[in-house]
Amino acid sequence: MKKEFKETRTQGVIFTAVIIFFGASSVLMQKFIPMLVPEDLAEAFTPSLITGLNDYVSNTLQIGSVVAILITISAIAGERESGTLELLLARPVSKFQILASKFTVRASYVILGNIVAAGVTWYYAYYLFEPFSIGKLLMSGLAMGAITSFVLGLTMIFSAWRSSKLTVAFWSGGISLALAILPTVRSPYDMMSPFKYGDIARRVLFQGVTPLGYLKNIGILVGFTLFCLTISLYVFRTSERIS
């Protein structure tokens, strides 16, 4: 775990910086775009906190998922590519421990990064627009952390399967995109996409969500993630790819 933190700390900082930038900039842009564009165009923009927060959720989910894939593709495929996996497998450490430590470290970056980004976004929303509940933003950040952790779990499957980071990125990116599009398909197929439940991050900000409803959605997202990790472990255990 210590080695994983050291190896990936730069990636963790990059993830947090990227989502803080896109999260906070959504609110900032909303406020300042009318001042940056010519006067005749500025009239078309009406700064609104709701639009700013809506952009914050969309940007964080999209960019966060892409960065999550980028920081996870190297988890096991990177060990194969650099030739370090063989020595790691000859240590008295199980494949479950290897996979769990790699996932836990990355998931902690993703969850903490989203919570920090939610805090920064709240700060700007509060001072630039109007007093606003930080609790709702933190709950939204946590929900985005949960959906992004699912993307991590999905990427883990392909990282455990393949050796080339490019191939891992192709498969995990493609399937994440397909699952993100699935909720736009009519019922019942939308129920199969974790992104449908990830919409709780938006609903908690703008609609009334009961604590039970919130926890139910988070629980479903955690379930999807655990399902991906179980498949990852199966793939990792059965794969004989060393380099």
Binding site: K3, K6, T84, E86, L87, A90
Partner: peptide
């Protein structure tokens, strides 16, 4: 103790 052929180590350590 094991040493594989052409062993690679973590470059950041």
């Amino acid at each position: 103790g094991y040493l594989p052929e052409g062993a690679s180590f973590y470059r950041f350590m």
